[in-house]
Design a protein around this nucleic acid. Structure first.
Lengths: 249, 249
DNA sequence: GAGTGGTCTAGACCACTAA
DNA sequence: TAGTGGTCTAGACCACTCC
């Protein structure tokens, strides 16, 4: 049973937005708003293409898009089906700042220190620099709705880019890096836990020895240059990480 | 400068393996083995297609594959470039069992309890069952090289599938589920930290109050039925989670 | 046997980048 | 201006699933 007949799909060939993307967005919105119900069969790619005046590859590209997002499943000999909506949300582990904003909480940042220092050995290794090379050391306290959430210790290699404390308190670091022409491509992240040191406990208003969730991340650009290395120490009592996984066999 | 000329790319049209996949694998292996160096330009999709006797869309599909894996970057007007190899490894967060095996450690499992019980409220909610519905409760101790690593508490809805303690001690749970025809499609996971309870501390040979890394996961099939819900409590001193992220703007 | 997605071809025009 | 990837077309045959 073909369900897409009941959905209003309209394409604008004059738009600079690619046709496959327009279709992909409209299908996604239809799923999101329940106009395409979970389990519904999308029906024949070829008929769909014919109805929309598109070629089949274009329609396939749109569908593949949503399959990659986990909204649709294709089964050969059966059809394309809407996945049950139990699972949604960005599957990305984006920046802490953006996560908080998206969650409707009011993030803020306090810059505790910002200085050029010689890189400690472990940092030099992570950034691919010579031992003791000069790096920018940045220590921030991240708050949500005025309540301390995490201590962020960040090291930046010399980009020629030197953010001010002011900028750092009004925007996320990644956004600043991007506007400075530094675009991270991939990152390696280690998630662990440990007990808070006395200093950390004080800064985070936790009892000494409280469990912290730690995220240590190194980000790279496409040339393989390290762009950032840092550790987030989060109050486990106030913060947890939500991940969405697609399990592909 | 086109680098692919120096790489031996041979396709077998008689093979059941799709051509785009053959090409994709050979390029990946060439990158992995350094025959295609980081930063190298792959050069013109059309010439590459011509040389291999393929059509351009087929070549594009192969390349897109590697772009999605983060091994290549495309830039319009410039070309397709090999990303620096700083970052590799499966970007999936797979099963704990497989992760350990891949890391060359010897995983083992001790089943501490396995019984049908009425679902606690929180579990019933997560699994989408009525309060008090019967579920399979499974408590395991995961070890690596004989050393306790994590306590795994798992709840399974009634699949008609009832694993034996024996099977559970020799294989990972997900592998068992799959052979029973239950195929997870996506999962939602929450990562946090907390202090160990006295019982947990004993089982994990940690001091009481030691920090634990906790992973709470609910997995769903394509129909949106919950397939599994459970919590892993890992010794933070012995275990951390490695993630590989691709940052797409 | 009928219907589905999976793969593949041989073209075309456009937008962007760099020299 | 020349070269690149981005998008799009109109077909084709195959493998698989279900009836």
């Amino acid at each position: 049973m073909d369900v897409t007949w009941s959905v209003d799909l309209s394409l604008d060939r004059g738009s600079p937005v690619p046709l496959y993307f327009q279709l992909s967005q409209q299908l996604e919105s239809a799923i999101e708003h329940g106009r395409l119900r979970p389990g519904a069969l999308l029906g024949n790619e070829i008929r769909l293409a014919g109805r929309l005046g598109l070629s089949r590859p274009t329609v396939r590209q749109a569908i593949q898009n949503l399959v990659d997002k986990g909204l649709l499943v294709r089964r050969r000999g059966v059809g394309t089906q809407v996945v049950h909506p139990r699972v949604r949300r960005p599957s990305q582990l984006s920046s802490l700042w953006d996560d908080l904003e998206a969650a409707g909480r009011r993030p803020s940042t306090l810059v505790r220190s910002l200085a050029a220092v010689p890189a400690p050995p472990e940092v030099a290794t992570a950034l691919g620099l010579a031992d003791g090379a000069e790096v920018l050391r940045l220590e921030r306290l991240r708050l949500a709705d005025g309540e301390p959430l995490a201590l962020l210790l960040t090291y930046l290699p010399p980009h020629g880019f030197r953010p001010s404390a002011d900028e750092l308190e009004t925007t996320g670091l990644y956004r600043l890096l991007r506007t400075a022409g530094v675009t991270p491509h991939s990152a390696r992240q280690t998630i662990g836990a440990r007990a808070a040191t006395p200093e950390e406990a004080t800064a985070l208003t936790e009892p000494p020895g409280a469990p912290l969730l730690t995220l240590t991340r190194t980000a790279y650009d496409t040339a393989g240059r390290a762009v950032e290395h840092g550790t987030h120490a989060c109050r486990a009592s106030r913060y947890s990480l939500d991940l969405q996984l697609l399990l592909r066999p």
